[in-house]
């Protein structure tokens, strides 16, 4: 993105100043994480007397407590079941709808697409009461499928929007060629267009994963049974638990960070694409 030999109005001093500013900013942004990470290895007795420095005698007790008594391990596994199922359904719904909006002719294309766009920003709390009521009517309260359904519905408008713009920018000739070969619409989508859109589908998967993994209000209302909680919900509940000590809460946080960090390291490229998928065109 930026080449080394680039024209720049910065003199050497200005450059050094900016460099120093960036280093300080980045270090400052890491301090809250350092606070949590170091606290997670301190005993409950040590933390109040030594919140700043590294632990004198690092211990793993907090992790053991958070993972088992705090059920963080269980919650992480729950998330690892719900979220991939949610992402798979989300991809199917958004790719189908995005293809219809982006590449097909039908009378209600424009009004329906505007309706979808309009719904991309609805706050969850606007819907929460009725969504939890609906889920209960469908007998899906306290089921993973209930929360998955609510997630897919809530996050689908934005996913549909980015798939629509992607399909709309693809040459129509692909569709025509397949059509002349006598392929059915489903076939054109599944064997021609979706494979061509694969980079965007990967980006869509990442966006869906992050949205669902970090989601709170719907999981809180639908998964009332403790053993079913997601990891994000588990952390929010622990936070509200009166008298829970910082080192244990910290260990729970570190456990909860593991999966998002792995996703980040593996799929950084798609995360970057995901940020710019919605809107950048200069």
């Amino acid at each position: 993105m930026i080449r080394s030999k680039q024209v720049t109005p910065f003199g050497p001093f200005a450059r050094l100043g900016v460099q120093a500013f960036m280093v300080i900013l980045v270090l400052a942004s890491l301090l809250p994480l350092y606070n949590v990470l170091s606290a997670s290895f301190k005993s409950i007795e040590e933390y109040p007397s030594n919140p700043i420095m590294l632990p004198q005698v690092p211990i793993l007790d907090n992790y053991q407590y958070a993972a088992f008594s705090g059920h963080l391990l269980r919650f992480t596994l729950n998330s690892l079941v719900y979220v991939p199922i949610g992402v798979a359904l989300y991809i199917v719904v958004c790719v189908m709808a995005g293809y219809a909006f982006g590449k097909m002719r039908f009378a209600l294309n424009k009004p329906l697409f505007l309706l979808v766009l309009f719904m991309t920003i609805f706050p969850q709390l606007l819907l929460a009461t009725q969504v939890s009521k609906l889920i209960s009517i469908m007998h899906l309260t306290n089921t993973g499928f209930g929360v998955v359904l609510a997630w897919v519905a809530y996050f689908a408008p934005f996913g549909t929007y980015i798939m629509t713009t992607y399909f709309a920018d693809m040459p129509y000739e692909f569709v025509e060629a397949a059509r002349i070969d006598g392929a059915s619409p489903i076939r054109i989508l599944v064997s021609v267009m979706a494979p061509l859109a694969l980079p965007m589908v990967a980006t869509l998967a990442i966006i869906g994963f992050q949205s669902m993994w970090n989601e709170l209000p719907f999981s809180m209302l639908i998964l009332q049974n403790e053993s079913l909680r997601t990891v994000t919900l588990g952390i929010a509940v622990l936070r509200g638990q009166y008298g829970l000590r910082v080192p244990i809460l910290s260990a729970a946080l570190v456990i909860a960070m593991v999966v998002p960090l792995i996703i980040f390291l593996l799929f950084q490229r798609y995360i970057t694409l995901g940020v710019t998928a919605g809107a950048v065109k200069g």
Partner: peptide, 16 residues
Amino acid sequence: FLAPLLALLAAFMIYP
């Protein structure tokens, strides 16, 4: 193609 999306939106967004 739009049916799943529209059904979900009708139930979980428009109705609420």
